Structure formats: C-alpha cells, structure tokens
Computed example of a mutant assay.
Amino acid sequence: MDATLHLAQDPDADALLGRSPLAALIGMLLDQQIPMEWAFKGPRTLADRLGTDDLDAHEIAAHDPEAFAALLSEKPAVHRYPGSMAKRVQQLCQYLVEHYDGDPEGIWRDAGSGAELLRRLEALPGFGKQKAQIFLALLGKQLGVRPTGWRTAAGAYGETGSYRSVADITGPESLTRVRAHKQEMKAAAKAAKTTGSR
C-alpha cells in the first residue's frame, strides 16, 4: 500500500496513513466524537510515542494496557476518550494478530467480493456497518482495493462524485464539501427529531 492521503491534513501523518494499512485502520477506528483530522493524526502521534516510524499490530497487541493507555493520554491526547480508545486500538490489533497474523492487508488481499470484504471489516472490533462501509469506500476510491461489487457494498459512500465521508477527501476543497454535507445531515436529523416530537 502506497498512496497519498489527505485525511490528517498533516504531511507526516498523511504519509504514514498512505503507506501503513494499520495506521489507516487505527485512524478510522479513532474517527468518532472528535474532528476527523485529529483522529487521522492519531496513528502518527502513536508511532512517535512508541519510538517507531511504523505501527506493528503484534507490538500494540502485546503492549501493557495501562502503559498503552498512558501513551494515548499524554498531552496532546490522541483522542477525547484516550483510555477507552486505547482499549479499542489494542482489541483491534489483537484481532488482527489472531485472525490475520498481524497483517491488516490480509483483510482485503484475497477478498472475493465487496460483500465479503464488508463482512470482514464489520467483524473488526470497533467497526460497525457505517464505519466498515466508509473504510471500504476509502479502500476503493483512494487505495486501489476494488473487489467485484465494492461500490455496492460500500452503499452511498461508494458513489462516484459524492462528498459524504473521509473516502472522498483528497484535499482542502473536498474536506470543506464533506464538512458541509455532514452539517446538512445533522441539521436534517435535528429537524426530523423536532418534527417527530411534536
């Protein structure tokens, strides 16, 4: 995997995301309840604190849980909830070690279809259907992983020319468009809630 991503809006962090499947997965895992750039900068911060230029699932899985939580909690914290996210990151890495010998690319390398790849992503700790579909769309749109039917499996996130998620961010302009889409969705959800409670 060697791609140019623009999710962290930080050259070093984005370079790691583009070459390390594990960094991309961890960034996706962290992408909740905090700004997207903060989430996708997390893997680079974590690598720096581990004293490495890459991330290794075996190493993270075997790390002392308290010490690992402390790494994520150092200022600036990797996430708003560093303790619980440290646990999730370790669970993800433990799953990768157990099912893919620590190789994240094993998730998609031999996936026979988009539907199969989606099932594999949904099975990852911390990945629900929406997160799995967004990551599948990111794999297809920006990382060249395109098993048969990947767009269909990714749902709306797989649509060409859409600006719905991190899968569609290729620079500052597309980031602005994705942000605008998310604001519209929040406003629509809020309006529906208000209407429904009358």
Rank of each mutant, 00 (worst) to 15 (best):
P43H: 02
D12H: 12
R49A: 01
E184S: 07
R198S: 04
F127N: 07
M1D: 13
I26D: 06
K182R: 12
G51Y: 07
T152N: 06
G158W: 00
I60W: 03
D110L: 10
H181Q: 13
T170N: 08
T195E: 10
H6F: 13
L143K: 08
R109Y: 07
F127K: 02
D64T: 10
T160I: 14
A61G: 10
Y157W: 06
H58T: 11
L143P: 05
F127G: 04
D56L: 04
Q91Y: 01
P125M: 03
R179T: 05
K129V: 10
E105D: 08
R177C: 04
L136E: 09
W150G: 10
D12M: 05
Q9K: 03
Q33S: 15
L72T: 00
Y157G: 09
G196D: 01
Q33A: 13
M28P: 02
V97L: 02
D10P: 12
P82E: 09
E159M: 00
G158A: 06
L139N: 08
Q183P: 04
A137C: 05
K87S: 13
G114M: 02
T170K: 07
L71R: 14
E116N: 08
R177S: 14
V97C: 08
L29H: 04
A153G: 12
A15N: 03
D2R: 06
T194W: 01
H181F: 12
L29W: 02
G158Y: 04
G158H: 10
V145H: 12
A189R: 03
T152E: 14
V89T: 07
G126D: 08
A3Y: 03
D101W: 02
A8M: 00
I26K: 05
Q90R: 13
L124E: 01
T176L: 13
S84E: 12
I169M: 02
I26G: 11
A15V: 01
E37V: 05
L124G: 01
P11R: 08
L138H: 11
D101Y: 02
R88D: 04
L5P: 10
T176W: 08
P65W: 12
G102R: 03
L139H: 09
D14E: 13
I107E: 06
P104D: 04
I134F: 02
G112H: 07
K129Y: 01
Q32N: 12
P147V: 11
S84A: 14
G27R: 15
R120D: 06
T45S: 07
E66R: 11
P11G: 09
A47Y: 10
I26S: 09
Q91A: 14
A180S: 10
T52V: 09
I107W: 10
K87G: 12
Y163E: 15
E184R: 09
W38G: 05
F68E: 05
E122L: 00
R88A: 12
D64Y: 13
